[in-house]
Amino acid sequence: MLISTYLPYKFTKKVVLFSLCTTGISIGAFYLYMCLFPSLDDQLFKAVKKKCEYYSCKVHLHEITSFKWDKAYFFPNTRSYSNQDIKKITGISFDLQKYKTVDGQEYKTLAMFIYDGKLVKYNFFEAPFFTENDHLEDTKSQYFTILFSIDTSVYPFRNGDGFEELIEFKKNFEIAYYEITPINDLLYITFLNRKKYSNDTIREVLVIYSNLNQVHLHNP
């Protein structure tokens, strides 16, 4: 009886230890993968932080990307675009519907980088947002986002921020999408610090175009 009760206990203990070990290995592998292969927005955030050191600055997009491209496109709120729209604008067939229903991708900025007529990199950028109760919803501590809506009455275009000396906005408007080439890829960068209820800081890189040739506006 002693042997028969001891063996199951010993076996169960080994199973538990094995499960804990495999779980630990899986979690460790996940974080190792994230460190070795960070998402494009994380890569760009890190590159901008290194270049700007959390201050507003000017950045050439080709200087903070590690791959070749000759055209870059940024689309806001991708649910507004169909596969036909994307192909007409970029010349690239992109199955947007395949990704729209995954993790709310339709609410994220779509970035597409093209080289020699072929898609070499794409990514969905998300941004922290506030609910109706002013609760900051977030999934990570840093974000790389693109400016599409111009409101001259709010940050970062208030007097004293500095960007009003670089870009003059006379009225509010909406940007349909960005179209950038390596010879016209100067962007303005500013950093935003947002607070959660827990008082943790969320850092956001806000990318702003430097000239109207980089953007296509919605028709009035």
Rank of each mutant, 00 (worst) to 15 (best):
D70F: 07
K118R: 10
G28H: 04
Y81S: 01
T201L: 09
S19A: 14
V15I: 13
D138S: 15
L7H: 01
F129E: 04
Y115A: 05
I202N: 00
T145V: 12
F30G: 09
L7W: 11
M34Y: 15
E132V: 12
S26Q: 13
T23G: 09
F163Q: 07
G117A: 07
L119M: 06
I183S: 15
V207G: 02
P76E: 00
T139F: 13
Y115H: 11
H135I: 13
T5Q: 15
H216L: 14
Q105Y: 11
K108S: 05
M112E: 05
K14I: 13
D161E: 13
F67C: 02
A111E: 02
E204S: 04
M1F: 13
I114V: 05
I89R: 03
K49Q: 11
D41T: 05
Q142V: 10
F191E: 08
S210E: 05
T5Y: 14
H218S: 05
V120G: 01
V205G: 00
P8W: 01
F75M: 04
D95I: 07
I183T: 12
H218N: 13
K68I: 06
F130L: 13
I89E: 03
I150Q: 02
I27V: 15
I208A: 05
T90K: 01
Y33R: 08
S210W: 01
R194G: 06
V59E: 02
H218L: 15
Y122V: 02
M112T: 01
L136V: 07
F130W: 09
T109P: 01
E63S: 09
